[in-house]
Write a protein that binds this DNA or RNA. Structure first.
Length: 577
RNA sequence: CGGGACGUGGCGCAGCUUGGUAGCGCACCUGCUUUGGGAGCAGGGGGUCGCGGGUUCAAAUCCCGCCGUCCCGACCA
């Protein structure tokens, strides 16, 4: 049994720590490769992972930071079931979502596995909170969520079962919600700073949560699935799903008094059209046909832009791409020669990006191999002018903060102003001072601890392994013992381990017998604790003791006298005091 | 859900085209030597080749179906 007299410190001999030499064959993301190689996680099935004892240390350190910061803003921890009666989800119209795991109990009662807990916490709030005197409240939990993801991927980054810190605020009015939202915003900043991440707070889409305002917390990483548009100074930052920008207008020149048809044989794409006409793509309009529930929609953006599906969906609702035959039927031409002029507004709804309100454009003529030039919105066709395009890097941010860059990010947390989306259908109401019944105003706030850990790996690694931020490393100090159990080095290393632990550090002592020094060094690099101390024959009897910082590889030689204090000092330097 | 790839000792892979004794590296076990950056020698254990069906005298290999996993896209608090 490995002795561990100090909370948080480990002797390694006899512990389960399954490292591997090779990258797993099916891993792509760096955090996926390294989390498996460093023995932090093991896969059970697609999107299902077991966390090993040493991996759990990292997760628990993230969770400890979260608990401290949530408690600091007065949030209270509780714990709700993962399995819920379906009726509660039916009440908010969220029963039957495609990602929801559904089942029946033995008596045939419909149940669901929780993908989140808005419904459940609101159900409780509706029963327990009655008076303005009961408000405000902030409740949180760190609990398992289950989502039947269409495509689990990238190791622990996108999984079907994971733990989430989710909190919920209950306020009497909008001002109260604003305070709760602000408190969470400040707590989140401290949490992600303490976890050692580079992160952005960005405006986000309210999505399926509904509500009136939302921000996402994003860690930049090439493994990220979301994209943020931001200025270099950070004054503007938004998920591309809703990012806006000032497009650069080309020199349109004079518009002809009416659209002029011209032949464009065999031209099917904007690139080809730009080459054929010698005009800048920004003077060409792209026409995309989709089918919404109400019928066909022609969506138009400038040639250099892309239609953003989510933005479009905000305007026209759920939709799909149109089939070739449908397009023929509605427009009398094939994709490549489509345009808005002459289209019957009774059959086809036309939505045009805001950029098209300026200038005149080349569009398809709805005759194969023919385009029109000089097409003007408002004069030659009517359309709803709306924002449906994706911003491009280099375009100017709306606030004057400069040019936008597009960066891939991992979503590590989010905060939502829910308003009454859940409290209303679930009947969470209270009586105000005047005795009037009012609906409770809610917010919800999430963080994925495992994503925080994986983002830290994405942002901190080199060819040899992980470089943990001091705040969430599995250990503060990793002692590599070179020598047998009964050697003087072992005796010294064990004493040093105790001494460092007494100083409040979490220390890993690699006292595994029979391993070669090289293997221990390689695995220490893989694991990536901030400081590595080597105790070998060179150390004794007179020193020096070698300490290496994982991040910089900087080596420090310490005299044996006062070594533990000196190491603690080095650690404080790395951890930021 | 569309497209693509892969499934062979614990891990990483070869063998499949052209059917005929299941192989390599690492890991593992034993012994000796070694011990400050994934050791050397010798010996050894471990695989119904994802599952089911078919073709054949004979299937890891050919055919059909299914399952699993990964990647791209769609999707996605």
């Amino acid at each position: 049994m490995p002795a561990s007299p100090y909370r948080g410190s480990w002797r390694l001999a006899g512990r389960f720590w399954p490292t591997v030499r090779d990258d797993p064959a099916d891993a792509e993301a760096i955090s996926h490769k390294l989390s498996v190689r460093a023995g932090l996680v093991r896969q059970l099935a697609a999107g299902l992972y077991t966390v090993t004892p040493i991996g759990l240390r990292v997760i628990q350190r993230v969770e400890a930071i979260i608990r401290e910061e949530m408690d600091r803003i007065g949030a209270q921890e509780l714990l709700m079931p993962v399995m819920h009666p379906a009726e509660i989800w039916e009440a908010t119209g969220r029963y039957g979502l495609s990602e929801q795991f559904r089942l029946e109990d033995r008596s045939g009662r419909k149940m669901v596995l929780g993908m989140t807990h808005e419904e459940i916490i609101t159900w409780h709030a509706a029963r327990e909170l009655r008076s303005y005197r009961d408000l405000p409240q902030s409740w949180y939990q760190i609990q398992t969520k289950l989502r039947d993801e269409p495509r689990p991927k990238s190791g622990m980054l996108r999984v079907r079962e994971f733990t989430m810190k989710d909190s919920y605020s209950f306020d009497a009015d909008e001002e109260g919600l604003e305070r709760s939202y602000q408190a969470h915003s400040e707590a989140y900043a401290r949490i992600f700073d303490r976890a050692g991440l580079t992160w952005y707070r960005v405006e986000s889409d309210v999505g399926m949560m509904g509500g009136s305002g939302a921000h996402e917390y994003m860690a930049p990483s090439s493994a990220g699935e979301d994209v943020v548009a931001r200025t270099a100074d950070g004054s503007y930052a938004a998920n591309v799903e809703l990012a806006v920008s000032k497009a650069v207008d080309p020199d349109f020149g004079e518009a002809p008094s009416a659209p002029e048809p011209f032949d464009t044989p065999g031209i099917g794409s904007i690139d080809e059209l730009a080459r054929f006409t010698g005009q800048h793509p920004a003077t060409l309009a792209k026409s995309v046909v989709v089918v919404a529930e109400s019928g066909p929609v022609l969506a138009m953006v400038r040639g250099e832009h892309q239609v953003h599906e989510k933005k479009l969906a905000h305007v026209i609702g759920p939709h799909r791409a149109a089939h070739a035959e449908e397009i023929r039927q509605w427009f009398g031409a094939d994709p490549g020669s489509l345009g808005p002029v002459g289209v019957d507004p009774g059959t086809v709804r036309i939505v045009a990006d805001l950029t098209l309100e300026r200038g005149h454009y080349v569009t398809g003529a709805n005759r194969d191999g023919v385009h029109l030039r000089g097409v003007v919105l408002g004069r030659d066709f009517q359309a709803e002018a709306v924002d449906i395009r994706t911003v491009l890097p280099g375009e100017q941010a709306p606030g004057g903060g400069g040019a936008l860059e597009l960066v891939p990010v991992i979503e590590i947390g989010n905060i939502f102003k829910l308003g009454t989306k859940y409290s209303d259908p679930l009947g969470a109401r209270y009586l105000d001072e005047a005795g009037t019944e009012r609906t409770i105003i809610m917010g919800s706030y999430g963080i994925g601890p495992a994503r925080v850990a994986m983002a830290a790996i994405e942002q901190g690694h080199d060819d040899d392994g992980i470089i943990w931020p001091a705040g969430i490393a599995p250990f503060d100090v990793h002692i590599v013992l070179i020598g047998d159990h009964d050697s003087p080095q072992a005796e010294y290393a064990t004493a040093l381990w105790s001494e460092l632990s007494d100083l409040g550090l979490q220390v890993l002592l690699d006292d595994r017998p029979g391993l070669r020094p090289g293997e221990k060094f390689v695995e220490a690099d893989l694991l990536g604790c901030p400081l590595r101390v080597t105790v070998g024959k060179r150390t004794l009897p007179d020193g020096p003791l070698e300490v290496q910082a994982r991040a910089t590889r900087e080596k420090t030689e310490l005299p044996l006298e006062g070594a533990a204090e000196a190491i603690a000092g080095l650690w404080r330097g790395i951890a930021g005091g």
